[in-house]
């Protein structure tokens, strides 16, 4: 089977190009799985620490520990930097996105514990830069929104778990307002970011659960003519006896 050698060479080149593409895609998929795993573990770690934290400064410490763990993710992204250089990021966006969103979820949880607010797009991008200040790859608004949208689910768990702890009822109310604002703010982005629709449905469910918890607290407290803190104290004394 003779083939003109120029055709042959051209197809040899294509073979290398395709093999390279598939190999790189595999490497990125594997790295993304690792990132997802580290991020998920960080979220559990943060829940653990936040639950034990008695006050704001303990929550700041918890956040710090979580952020430290997330540097592992940042190192992985630093390693992927060359694979995603120039126009390559967009070629592998679909492989990179899931892990990235999980990372943003973990990062925004740590941020919330420290500052009580929502991490900004710029702050997320800043964690994905080399020492030279150059971004490893461009962060899409879509990944940012989808990542922080997942935060609301974790905040629901945070609010419910903390319910019986000292100050838990107040924190549930605060979290309720924060999550409600997230839902309200994200709403106008849904025409632009399609998957955000589904996430908003999940956020609505989480919000509803937090509201129910806050409601329970208010209803019980309202029955007595005493300030909520005093009631809390009474309960704590009884339990300790």
């Amino acid at each position: 089977m003779s083939m003109s050698s120029s055709i042959h060479n051209q197809f040899l080149l294509f073979r290398d190009l395709l093999d390279d593409y598939h190999d790189r895609r595999e490497r990125l998929i594997k790295a993304s799985r690792d990132i997802t795993n580290i991020s998920k573990k960080t979220i559990f770690l943060l829940h653990r620490l936040a639950l034990e934290a008695q006050d704001a400064s303990a929550r700041v410490d918890a956040s710090k520990i979580g952020l430290k763990k997330l540097t592992e993710v940042q190192e992985l992204y630093a390693d992927m930097r060359d694979e995603l250089a120039g126009d390559q990021y967009w070629r592998y966006e679909r492989q990179v996105s899931p892990g990235l969103q999980e990372y943003i979820e973990a990062l925004s949880f740590a941020h919330f514990l420290e500052h009580g607010g929502l991490i900004t797009y710029e702050q997320v991008q800043a964690t994905l830069c080399g020492a030279d200040g150059i971004a490893f790859f461009p962060l899409t608004i879509s990944d940012y929104l989808l990542g922080v949208s997942d935060l609301t689910g974790e905040l629901m768990r945070f609010a419910i778990s903390g319910f019986g702890r000292p100050g838990g009822r107040t924190r549930a109310l605060e979290t309720c307002i924060f999550v409600r604002n997230c839902k309200s703010d994200f709403e106008r982005f849904t025409p632009y970011v399609w998957e955000l629709h589904k996430k908003q449905v999940v956020t609505a469910q989480s919000l509803s659960k937090i509201e129910d918890a806050a409601y329970t607290a208010v209803v019980r407290t309202s029955e007595f003519d005493l300030p909520a803190e005093m009631l809390d104290d009474i309960v704590n004394q009884t339990v300790l006896i």
Binding site: I177, R180, K183, S184, D185, E187, R188, T190, P191, E211
Partner: peptide, 15 residues
């Protein structure tokens, strides 16, 4: 877009 903005504003009735 308009109705999303509406929904965004109206969700504030809860607080």
């Amino acid at each position: 877009k308009k109705t999303r903005i509406l929904v965004g504003i109206l969700s504030k009735i809860h607080s």
